[in-house]
Design a protein around this nucleic acid. Structure first.
Lengths: 148, 148
DNA sequence: ACTAAATAGATTGATATCAATAGAAATGGA
DNA sequence: TCCATTTCTATTGATATCAATCTATTTAGT
């Protein structure tokens, strides 16, 4: 009975090698660091870049759809907007047609920051794209989308 | 000149659709929520499960290799250990052969928690595995590893 | 119009993440 | 041995993440 709750080491190795959640978290951390480093001269993190890019639309979107697009909690989005508002890159205004909601838009300064970051994104993305076997990037995106 | 810093909407759509970093972050958030929800009855988050599973070894490992395995900052590992120590699931002891370092090990209580979580992991993992086209899970792991 | 239910966000509290920095201990070269 | 360097970890500060809970507003049913 004494070691009835012991998990064999072989099981640990199996979980480590097969767990898709772990593999994705690991890749997420590594890619986040990579893009954070690359985008640092532009003053953005990878998450801020993705968020601000998603706000570059003809019409200011409400928060819900943006959170959905980024697959993040609405709470997280509220928090993520704070530093961007402080820096004057993003405007959060009340939706005149639904006073519960907010409309998110980039300021001219925000657009300028984003424009400065775009070529960095392009070169960084091309670099990691090159680390994958030919054609697998598209496949990878599809597989990841199936998990979201 | 006035709109020379405008990024076309088409570029935004291209970045959204192709950015591997965004796709991975999105999948990471979705999978984290999924496993967090499933593992909640066991009292663990997905990250705690992965960390504790990586400590289930014959010999207690030092922090550096564990952080490397999980592709996380050592600072993050230090912080992640705190709640697990408080709960009495993980022991952090000074390495007698290198007093700068620490050795990490699971307590019997920690092993019991992990054993309780294992079947949850198995069923949850089988479920998401089923959401992927046949055989693509292994391919996905390889692609993700190439990014780490 | 009135009220119950649904919806959109905000707040709080806990953990996760990393950069920058600092400290302690081990290592290597003179 | 002595000292500079390296290695291993901790601390601090900022942002990221989500659950639980709350308020305000809209919508739907009557």
């Amino acid at each position: 009975m004494s070691n009835s709750i012991e998990i064999p080491f072989s099981t640990t190795l199996m979980v480590r090698d097969t767990c898709l959640c772990l593999h994705v978290q690991r890749a997420a951390r590594a890619l986040a660091r990579l893009f954070d480093d690359a985008l640092r001269p532009a003053g953005l993190t990878n998450g801020q870049f993705s968020l601000m890019m998603s706000l570059n639309r003809p019409e200011p979107p409400p928060m819900g759809p943006v959170a959905g697009l980024l697959a993040m909690d609405q709470t997280t989005l509220t928090a993520a907007l704070k530093p961007l508002q402080r820096k004057g890159w993003v405007t959060v205004m009340e939706n005149p047609r639904d006073r519960r909601g907010r409309l998110l838009s980039l300021t001219p300064e925000g657009k300028a920051v984003l424009a400065k970051a775009l070529p960095i994104w392009k070169s960084t993305h091309a670099m990691i794209d090159g680390k994958l076997p030919d054609g697998s990037a598209e496949r990878l995106r599809q597989d990841l989308q199936a998990l979201s």
